[in-house]
């Protein structure tokens, strides 16, 4: 598969668009269907496609396993961090209205965006790690 020029070029063309579509899904989640979970999966799908076509070793150069695992942890941290931040700003845990001192609605908006970002990072990291560990395991002789 790694030598098929059509697949290689097509992947090269499509990968940035898949990534961009994921970001669109992420930031447009307030108005249409979408959000952190879906965006994370699509983001990960771009890397999975890349790894399938160019080989798992090349993909690991682009995005090492450790970085993906770090993403998985970072997302939870962002989520909980937003909660702690609202506590410092005087509200309850995850009470986004306090993120903006003037307008509670803006605070909610900001909070939701940040939290969704956390979800995106976690889901993306987890999916890539799971894929790497399955694909990099080596074949069983049949």
């Amino acid at each position: 598969m790694e030598s098929n020029p059509i697949l290689r070029i097509a992947t090269k063309i499509m990968t940035p668009y898949i990534l961009m579509f994921a970001l669109y899904v992420q930031f447009h989640g307030d108005y249409g269907p979408g959000g952190g979970f879906q965006a994370g999966v699509i983001f990960a799908a771009a890397f999975v496609l890349y790894a399938l076509i160019y080989g798992i070793e090349t993909a690991r150069l682009v995005l090492p396993m450790g970085v993906a695992a770090l993403c998985g942890a970072l997302g939870v941290l962002i989520y909980a961090g937003v909660g702690i931040a609202t506590m410092f700003l005087g509200g309850g845990f995850l009470e986004y209205g306090f993120l903006d001192s003037h307008d509670a609605e803006h605070g909610q908006h900001l909070g939701i965006l940040l939290v969704e970002l956390g979800v995106l990072t976690t889901v993306f990291g987890v999916m890539v790690v799971i894929f790497y560990s399955f694909a990099g395991r080596g074949r069983v002789e049949e």
């Binding site: 307030d30 979408g34 959000g35 609605e105 909610q108 939701i112």
Partner: peptide, 15 residues
């Protein structure tokens, strides 16, 4: 008007 987003699923999910 509590969260300012039209997609109820997102606002319930995250807020």
């Amino acid at each position: 008007h509590e969260t300012g987003m039209p997609n109820v699923v997102t606002s319930v999910l995250a807020s």
